[in-house]
Amino acid sequence: MAIIDLMAALMGVSMGFLAFLVIGGVSGVSAGIFYPGASGEVNPDRILTAFLLGSIAAAASSYAGQYWDLFQSGQILEWASTIFAACAVGCVFAALAK
Rank of each mutant, 00 (worst) to 15 (best):
L10R: 03
S62W: 05
Q66Y: 07
G12P: 02
I83Y: 14
F51I: 10
C87Y: 10
A88P: 00
I4Y: 06
S62R: 04
P44C: 06
A97C: 09
C91M: 13
G16P: 01
G65Q: 03
G40D: 03
P44N: 09
A59T: 09
F20D: 12
A97Q: 14
A86K: 01
Y67P: 00
G24F: 07
I83G: 14
V92K: 12
V26D: 03
A58P: 00
I3D: 12
L18T: 02
G74I: 10
Q75F: 07
L70E: 01
T49M: 13
S27P: 00
S27V: 05
G74Q: 11
L70P: 02
A64F: 14
V29C: 03
S73W: 01
Y35C: 01
F84W: 07
S30R: 06
A80V: 15
S39C: 02
A50N: 05
A19Q: 03
A80Q: 13
S62V: 01
A50T: 03
C87S: 06
L10Y: 05
A8K: 14
S62K: 01
R46K: 13
S62D: 03
V29D: 01
M7G: 10
L77Y: 11
A31F: 08
A58E: 00
I33W: 07
A50H: 06
A86G: 06
I23M: 05
A31V: 08
M1V: 09
W68H: 07
A31E: 07
L21Y: 05
M1A: 13
F71L: 08
L70N: 03
A97T: 12
T49D: 11
I83S: 14
F20G: 04
P44G: 06
F93P: 08
A31T: 05
G16K: 02
Y67H: 12
G65I: 06
Y35I: 04
E78C: 09
Q72K: 12
F51R: 09
D5N: 11
F34A: 07
L6H: 10
A64W: 11
I76Y: 09
A58N: 02
A88I: 10
V29A: 00
V42I: 15
A80T: 13
E78R: 09
R46T: 13
A64I: 15
D5S: 04
Y67D: 07
M15C: 03
V89L: 09
Q66S: 12
